[in-house]
């Protein structure tokens, strides 16, 4: 067996022309390379849509072997605050570029929307100061979280969620390469679970190989991956216990729902924000909840999503959410009884 690799890296395109699903953006980026001039860039879009990949491919095409000397890759969310802007960027931006044909260096700032407002203002000044030899490429989930003065200095590129046909093409070509016979129902399930996030799709797919143990009948020399394997991976990564917790809460069993929730949080190492976003997904996709109930529950998710971000103890906030669910459940039981009379 060949050396183990993470597929998201192994199959990360190294040329712009190979980046899938963002054709218009890729065309414009290629034009920048040809003209050897470029404004600051702002890449907006959810995770797994190709922001980092496009940047890396572009940088490699620009600088070739000198790529590492001319590119600074930073994560705003890991070293939050103004220090990152002040020190790392300053040191890098201060030195002159070493390539002959490209007159500037590149700084890629991932998750730029995690920077505080103050840090963003400092960043803005730096974008001005070093324009002669540095171009910034900022990446974020929501461009609205970037202060307007930065937005106005950047060419904004919006990365769309990966379309089904594109995701299918990528996943199936990985399947060919890795000698896997992927059922088309399994492919559909991966697409639904990934929600337009190609990185997630590849991670799910790779995890299925840990449990795929049946050789394929139709394509010799390959392993078969069916919807069963995919389902097992997805339910491991996105615990269905949360749905049961919701139902416990709605049925008036507050204590049970609360106890189970804290167990699940510890078991999976989930954060409060993760738990709420999972709750929200499961409510929306539920086939038993009535629409009226769904809306009430989603509104409550919104309230506690906010409270979790403002508070310090996620257990307390989540239990407060469950107390709300408990009340919503009680009220809807009464209403149903009244309307039956």
């Amino acid at each position: 067996m060949s050396k183990f690799e993470i597929w998201t890296e192994k199959y990360r395109p190294s040329k712009l022309s190979e980046v899938k699903g963002q054709d218009e953006i890729i065309n414009r980026l290629s034009a920048f390379i040809k003209s050897e001039s470029m404004p600051h860039l702002l890449f907006a879009g959810m995770q797994g849509t190709g922001k980092t990949t496009s940047f890396l491919a572009m940088a490699k095409e620009m600088y070739g072997d000198n790529y590492r000397d001319n590119v600074l890759e930073l994560n705003a969310s890991d070293e939050r605050g103004i220090n990152i802007v002040r020190t790392s960027i300053k040191d890098f931006a201060r030195t002159k570029t070493v390539t002959e044909n490209v007159p500037f260096k590149l700084i890629f700032l991932d998750e730029a929307d995690a920077l505080t407002k103050d840090a963003q203002h400092a960043l803005r000044r730096m974008m001005e100061d070093y324009t002669s030899n540095v171009r910034f490429c900022l990446s974020c989930n929501y461009s609205s979280r970037i202060i307007p003065p930065i937005q106005s200095r950047c060419a904004i590129f919006r990365f769309q969620p990966i379309r089904k046909d594109v995701m299918k093409e990528v996943i199936l070509s990985i399947a060919r390469e890795e000698k896997i016979d992927l059922d088309h129902t399994a492919m559909d399930y991966i697409y639904d679970a990934a929600e337009g996030d190609l990185r997630k799709a590849e991670n799910i797919f790779q995890a299925t190989t840990a449990i795929a143990d049946k050789p394929s009948d139709s394509i010799p020399g390959t392993m078969r991956v069916t919807i069963n394997e995919v389902r097992e991976v997805v339910s491991f990564a996105e615990p269905t216990e949360l749905y049961e917790i919701l139902k416990l809460g709605l049925s008036g069993n507050f204590k049970a729902s609360k106890d189970k929730l804290s167990d699940v949080l510890v078991k999976y190492g989930l954060s409060g924000a993760d738990a709420i976003s999972q709750f929200q997904k499961q409510i929306w996709n539920s086939e038993e909840f009535e629409d009226k109930l769904k809306v009430k529950l989603i509104k409550s998710c919104g309230e506690y999503d906010f409270r979790i971000s403002e508070g310090s103890n996620e257990f307390i906030q989540l239990n407060a959410f469950l107390a709300d669910v408990n009340l919503i459940g009680t009220n809807s039981r009464f209403q149903n009884r009244d309307s039956n009379i």
């Binding site: 998201t8 995770q47 890759e73 994560n75 969310s77 890991d78 998750e111 991670n203 990564a237």
Partner: peptide, 15 residues
Amino acid sequence: LHTSARSLIRDFYPY
């Protein structure tokens, strides 16, 4: 993996 630790915990760690 060219990704922040924060999003790795969410997007990669479960798998």
